[in-house]
Simulated scan of single mutants.
Amino acid sequence: MTFAALILAGSRGGEDPVASHAGVADKALVDIDGQSMLSRVIGAVREAGVGRIAVSAQGPAVQAEADRCGATPVAAEAGPSASTASGLRTLGAPLLVTTGDHALLKPEWVRDFVARVPTGTDVAVLVARREAVGAAAPGSRRTYLRFADGHWSGCNLFFLATPRAEAAVRLWQAVEKDRKRPWRIVRRLGPVLLLRYLAGRLTLTEAVAHLGRRAGVVAAAIACPDGLAAVDVDKPADLDFVRGYLAQARVPDRA
């Protein structure tokens, strides 16, 4: 594929519950099925056909793991949005962005996502319906946003298709900066959008398009048919689910 990929593997600061649960220094180094979580993500992105892969990371251990896996380690900034902005400036667009805790990432998700981004789109996000997540990952607890056309969960896959996507990343930075001051987020995103959402009259497609226009870009949400794409490792229960899922997948079908 003729674009680069950025894997966000920075630390939130303080003690990470997943790393503590697994007994390692950093979540990206957690062992899953004989591989570090980061190496699994790098491998999936590479198998999807992406040749140039950078890993935004803090600390020498994670950077060394990225280098061992053939990816380019780059210093993480203060937060995922700032790291993405830095990565976009360095790597350019088009740029695929995912996270180092996307332990079950499959190459076909990446290929299908990028292939379905509409022509003229500046930034796209992959999402999954609650029904698809429930069918593919029963028992996994996800966070959903409720829209008029269903409940949706993010899949930690973004495609910054053009240089104009930088404007969307700037909006992301502003929202991230004001996450503890909700009234500022509402002011930035617009009260009309919020009211339509609260009234249950806003679809996901409309919301993403509206947010894109606020940022000055064309934005799109792409639905992934495989709900497993919404599973990341954000808490110890997620790690237990992923390990259990992979263990079950290795068991031969006796039917």
Rank of each mutant, 00 (worst) to 15 (best):
R89S: 14
N156M: 07
L204K: 01
P73V: 09
E206H: 05
K180V: 06
F158V: 11
T143A: 13
A75R: 13
A71Y: 10
A199D: 04
E206T: 10
L104M: 14
G154M: 12
R181S: 12
E206Y: 01
T99P: 00
V110H: 07
V133E: 05
D178Y: 03
A168I: 01
T162V: 09
A137R: 08
R188Q: 10
D101A: 00
A167F: 00
G100E: 04
L88I: 02
L204T: 05
V114Q: 04
A71D: 06
I185T: 05
L204I: 01
L171A: 06
R130C: 07
L96W: 09
R201K: 12
E166S: 12
V175C: 08
L202R: 09
G200D: 10
R201I: 01
R141A: 14
T90K: 13
L211S: 04
L160H: 12
A209C: 05
R201W: 07
F159N: 03
R146T: 14
L198Y: 00
W183T: 11
W109V: 05
P118N: 11
L211R: 11
G70P: 06
V123Y: 11
K106R: 15
T99A: 13
D122E: 12
T143S: 14
H102F: 02
S140D: 01
C155R: 05
E77T: 02
V208S: 01
S83Q: 01
D149F: 06
R196T: 00
Y144I: 06
Q173P: 01
L95H: 08
T99Q: 15
L194Y: 03
F147L: 05
R141Y: 02
H151T: 01
P118L: 07
Y197L: 15
K177F: 09
T72I: 13
W183F: 14
E176S: 12
T98D: 09
L198N: 01
G70A: 08
A124K: 09
V74D: 05
E108R: 04
A85F: 00
G134Y: 09
V208M: 03
G100D: 04
A207V: 04
N156G: 03
V175A: 09
A161F: 03
L104A: 05
L160D: 07
L145S: 14
A132G: 12
E206P: 02
A137L: 04
A103M: 09
T72L: 15
D149A: 07
E176P: 00
R201P: 08
R129Q: 13
H102V: 09
E77R: 15
S83N: 08
A71M: 10
G134Q: 14
L195R: 12
R164P: 00
V97Q: 06
D122C: 11
Y144K: 03
A85I: 07
E108C: 00
G120H: 11
P138C: 06
R196N: 09
L195A: 13
A85R: 14
N156H: 15
L95S: 10
W183I: 11
